[in-house]
Computed example of a mutant assay.
Amino acid sequence: MEPIQAQMVFCCAEQWMGGYFYQVEPWGDGLRLDPGHASTGVYCLTAVDSGETGFLWGRAAVEADLPADTALRIYARAADTRRWEDWPDLDRGIQSLGASPMASLREIFGAPVSDSGDCLLPCVGRYLWIMLELTATGTQAPVIRTLRLWMRGDHMTDYLPAIYQGEDFTRRFLSIFDSMYTDMDRRIDTLPGQMDYQHAGGDLLRYLASWVCVERGGSEEELRQRIRTALPDYEDLYTVEGVRRSVRRLTGRDPILIEPFQVSPNRPDCQDPVLYRRLYGEDPYRFFVLLPEDTFSGQRERELFQRDMEAVIPAGMTMQMIQLKPCVQLDWHTYLGINARIGGYVPAVIDEQATIHYDTTIGGANHE
Rank of each mutant, 00 (worst) to 15 (best):
R187V: 03
A230I: 06
L336S: 06
S114V: 04
W87C: 02
G193D: 15
F169Q: 01
E63P: 07
A315Y: 12
A136D: 03
L174P: 02
R106Y: 14
V274R: 13
T70D: 04
F173M: 10
P35Q: 05
I4Q: 09
L191E: 05
R253G: 06
G201D: 13
L33C: 01
V62T: 02
G201E: 13
M317L: 11
L121D: 02
A13D: 13
G202F: 10
C119G: 07
F296V: 07
T70C: 15
L257E: 05
R226S: 11
D196T: 05
W87K: 00
R278Y: 03
L223I: 14
R245S: 07
Q271V: 12
V247K: 03
P314F: 10
A79P: 01
R92C: 09
T251I: 09
S219L: 06
P88Y: 02
I188T: 06
R253V: 13
L223V: 07
R172K: 14
Q95T: 07
F10M: 05
R126W: 04
T239N: 03
Y127K: 07
C11A: 15
R286T: 15
K325R: 10
F305V: 05
E220W: 09
C270N: 14
K325C: 14
G298C: 14
L174M: 06
G41H: 04
R186T: 11
Q194E: 12
D272S: 15
T334M: 09
V212T: 11
D86L: 12
S100A: 15
Q165L: 12
T46H: 10
G93S: 03
P314M: 08
Y358V: 11
I144K: 04
E14S: 14
A64F: 04
P268W: 06
T229G: 02
R341S: 11
V328A: 09
D34F: 10
Q353D: 14
E133K: 04
R253H: 12
G19C: 08
R307S: 09
R172T: 08
H37L: 15
A315T: 06
M151P: 02
D254Q: 15
L120R: 12
D359E: 09
D331C: 12
I108K: 01
R187P: 02
Q299P: 07
A200N: 08
P192H: 09
G28N: 10
A136G: 03
T229C: 08
I94G: 01
M156H: 05
L97S: 05
R245A: 14
R248Q: 15
A200K: 06
V113T: 05
L128Q: 04
L149K: 02
